[in-house]
Simulated scan of single mutants.
Amino acid sequence: MRDYLNSNEKNQFMVLQSIVQMMDGLRNSGVDGPKISSMLEDWTKRDNMTKTEHKNLKTSETYLRKFLASVYERLNPKEQEAIKKKLMKFDFKLIDDYTLKQINRDIADKINNAVVPRQQFYDWSSEIMEVKCKGCKKDWQTCQLHQVFDNNLVPESGFDCKNCKYAYE
């Protein structure tokens, strides 16, 4: 038996641990929420849970806790500490398909497109121009850098070189 978890196992462990924390009323967007004990009472009081369902939910909670404690105890102390730290930053939410698609689109956009503050982009552009555009004789139509500068509204060099508005001497 290993004394560590691979990343997939760690994520699964974290999901189950989060469920236990929800059962304890600790995971509700930072606000203490209902505990499983109050849920069991409320559902039973409203006659929305059979005795068998009540027993099954309590049993599943007990065995989930036993499983998590057993796995955690066999891990080495370094792995336990890593899981504790990661769990503090870990959460999962139920979201609809539309929201999930939006999140995935935003992530894909951030992977495909770097976003930097405008002044920082201008500063980097100046450094690139110092290397690539100073003394450049290339035709602007064949220059990929020209297209990037033009698309991102980088100010022209002001030297009025015939080959490119970003070239300078």
Rank of each mutant, 00 (worst) to 15 (best):
N104F: 12
K137Y: 11
H146C: 15
E73P: 01
I103E: 11
G158R: 10
P155F: 08
K85R: 10
D47G: 04
G25T: 06
N6A: 08
Q141M: 12
E73W: 11
L16R: 09
F90Q: 10
G30F: 13
L68W: 03
I83V: 09
Q144C: 11
K51P: 07
Q21E: 09
Y98F: 09
V115H: 02
S60Q: 12
D123N: 10
R65Q: 08
V115M: 00
Y122M: 09
L145C: 06
F159C: 03
I95Y: 09
Y63V: 14
Q21M: 05
I111S: 12
I103R: 11
L87S: 10
F13G: 00
E41T: 08
K85W: 14
R118Y: 11
V154G: 01
G30D: 08
E156P: 00
A114D: 03
C133H: 00
K89A: 07
Y166A: 08
M23W: 01
M23D: 05
P155W: 07
V116Q: 00
D32T: 13
A82S: 05
D24C: 01
S7M: 12
M49K: 02
S38L: 01
E130V: 09
N28G: 03
G30M: 13
M129P: 00
K162T: 03
D106C: 02
D123F: 01
K101Y: 06
C143Q: 10
L40T: 04
G135D: 07
A167Q: 06
K51L: 14
P77K: 11
S37K: 11
P117C: 14
E130G: 03
L94E: 15
S157F: 04
T142Q: 14
M22L: 06
K10R: 14
D47V: 05
F121C: 08
K93S: 13
H54E: 13
Y4D: 02
E169S: 12
E61M: 07
K132E: 04
F121W: 05
Q119C: 08
M14Q: 04
E81I: 00
S29M: 08
L75W: 11
N48I: 00
D123C: 03
N8V: 14
W124F: 05
Y166T: 03
V131H: 04
D42Y: 13
L68C: 03
C143D: 08
S125I: 01
S60T: 12
R27N: 07
P77G: 06
C136P: 01
V115S: 03
K165C: 06
A108N: 08
D123W: 00
L16N: 04
Q147W: 12
N8D: 09
K110E: 02
